[in-house]
Amino acid sequence: MQQVQSYQEVIAHNIAQLKLPATPENLYAPLRYFLSLGGKRTRPALTLLGCSLFGTPGIKAINAAIAVELFHNFTLIHDDIMDDAPLRRGKQTVHEKWNRDIAILSGDVLFVEAYSYLSKNEGDVLPKLMTVFNTTAKEVCEGQQMDMDFESSDVITISDYIEMIRLKTSVLLGAALKMGAIVAQEDNENNIQNIYDFGVNIGLAFQLHDDILDVYADPSKFGKQVGGDILSNKKTFLLLKAFELADTATANQLSNLLKNGSGKQKVENVTAIYNQIGVKEAAEQQKQTFYRKALANMAAIDISDEHKKPLLSLAEYLMSRDH
Rank of each mutant, 00 (worst) to 15 (best):
M164L: 09
T75Y: 01
L87Y: 09
L105K: 03
G38H: 14
G180P: 12
L48F: 07
K120G: 08
L20H: 08
Q144M: 11
L46P: 03
N73M: 13
S320F: 13
I277Q: 02
K234S: 01
S304R: 14
D211R: 14
L53I: 11
L53G: 10
E9L: 10
K280P: 12
A64R: 06
K287M: 08
G50P: 10
E96W: 14
A16D: 15
G227T: 06
F71C: 11
R89F: 13
Y291W: 02
A246C: 04
L37M: 07
Q92L: 08
L18R: 01
L240C: 07
L257W: 02
G50S: 11
G50N: 06
H78S: 05
K241Q: 15
L258G: 06
T135H: 13
D80T: 06
A246P: 06
R43N: 00
R100F: 14
L118V: 03
N188Q: 11
Y196S: 12
V140D: 04
V200C: 06
S220H: 12
G123C: 01
K309D: 07
K241V: 07
H209V: 08
F290R: 08
L245W: 05
K120S: 10
I277S: 05
K138H: 02
I66R: 00
E113S: 13
F290A: 03
E189N: 07
Y161R: 11
N256C: 10
F74V: 03
K120L: 13
D302Q: 11
A114V: 13
D229P: 00
T169C: 03
L238D: 07
V112Y: 07
S304I: 14
Q276I: 12
I277F: 02
I59Y: 01
K178L: 15
T236Q: 01
L239A: 04
N134V: 14
S255L: 13
T250K: 05
L257G: 06
E151V: 06
L53W: 14
P219H: 15
A103D: 04
H13N: 14
A294F: 05
L258Q: 11
L258W: 12
F150I: 10
L126D: 02
G203M: 07
E69P: 00
E244I: 11
F222G: 06
F71T: 03
V10A: 04
A12G: 01
L314Q: 06
H78E: 04
L254M: 10
V155F: 15
N99Q: 10
K168D: 11
L238Q: 09
T248C: 06
D214S: 09
D305R: 12
Y7H: 00
